[in-house]
Design a protein around this nucleic acid. Structure first.
Lengths: 208, 208
DNA sequence: CCTACCGATCGGTAGG
DNA sequence: CCTACCGATCGGTAGG
């Protein structure tokens, strides 16, 4: 009797997980599963199976399944905003800034597709205030476009922001779904994207 | 004993469904549910609940759940291709054709979002050969772009097709998710889209 | 097209 | 962090 209790006590005082960090392991497992089966296809039971723990284990680190997803969403926005901030600084001219932002957007979507899916509620998600306070990256695009066309009216600038956002978003999703490869033969996606964005920026305001 | 059997017989010979067509009712219910909860969130049990029939009823019309979804996908492509064909004819000049195709694309996605989700596997779907033989509408865009720039090299034309496709796809999805309304204030989405597409077409080939 | 079920799976909890 | 479960739900089937 004493021995069993002592064993539990000592286990509790050791590392919280035999791999070092169950929380991180569960997040990693979730990202893997979401990548394979989408947000709605992701299951807590599958995650614990991968992590090699019991079904009750996740509740030590997350209130419930949604809490895990919210954690991933939050983490995603941190990574996303950081990537866009880097891109913004990388571009010297306003034009280059817009270009780099677009490339970074697509690259993030493809490299962190699970995060991206959770962030944008794609995969049957919910979009829990996705672009409310987390839209720092979005503001960078607004700034870059404003610097590109300082004299253009707000409407035109808004239009160009929306245009850029739409292309990169659509481009990323079509590529994630494999739709592009299945129809148009693309050799170098990033080069292709750069050309498209360049084409958009080139004209600037053309109407009034 | 006899009476019960006779009743079953007569029921079998009457209409297959008290509303007239269970198959259509199930499809309608499915579309409603997919609109609300996404493709993966859609449940056969919910559909029969809405249609007011038993859980076994759907299997008179569909082999299984996936068959229902495939049916919706197929129906969606028929509607989609018809809408794009109309748009293509509506536009007089090549430029107008591209414009109308884009507008029709987005309008379809917003008005038939459930069909659209199933077609493109959005919502955690699978993308069961979505653009293989069903891509008639896509070919119209290729034709319109080719007519716009008859002398441009294939690469450039490919790029413009991809650019147009990306914008309309991204624009539609951002709007479906409510992302646009949440950030950029858009008064008239369709007018906005027309401007964006016009901007893309305007430049044509700018490189080499 | 219905009743009555199955087998499987899921999120979550009790108690240790 | 585990064992042992619950309650609920799902896709699907037998038999009529």
């Amino acid at each position: 009797m004493m021995r069993a209790i002592d064993e539990l006590q000592s286990l509790r005082e050791k590392r919280p997980y035999h791999h070092g960090d169950l929380r991180a392991a569960l997040v990693a497992a979730a990202l893997l599963l979401i990548d394979q089966r989408g947000v709605k296809g992701f299951t807590l039971k599958d995650a614990v199976r991968i992590a090699g723990v019991s079904t009750a284990a996740p509740y030590r680190h997350f209130a419930d399944k949604e809490a895990l997803l919210r954690s991933i969403q939050k983490e995603g926005f941190v990574l996303f905003n950081a990537a866009l901030a880097d891109a913004y600084e990388k571009g010297v001219t306003p034009r280059a800034k817009v270009l780099e932002l677009g490339v970074a957007y697509v690259r993030f979507a493809l490299e962190h597709s699970a995060h991206f899916r959770v962030m944008f509620g794609i995969g049957g998600g919910e979009m829990t205030g996705p672009l409310g306070t987390n839209a720092n990256g979005f503001l960078l695009l607004v700034a870059a476009v404003a610097a590109l066309h300082p004299d253009a009216p707000g409407e035109v600038k808004n239009g160009l922001v929306l245009a850029c956002w739409s292309v990169v978003h659509g481009f990323a999703l079509l590529q994630m779904d494999g739709a592009i490869a299945a129809t148009v033969g693309v050799h170098d996606p990033e080069e292709q994207l750069r050309r498209i964005l360049d084409l958009m920026i080139a004209t600037g305001s053309h109407e009034s």
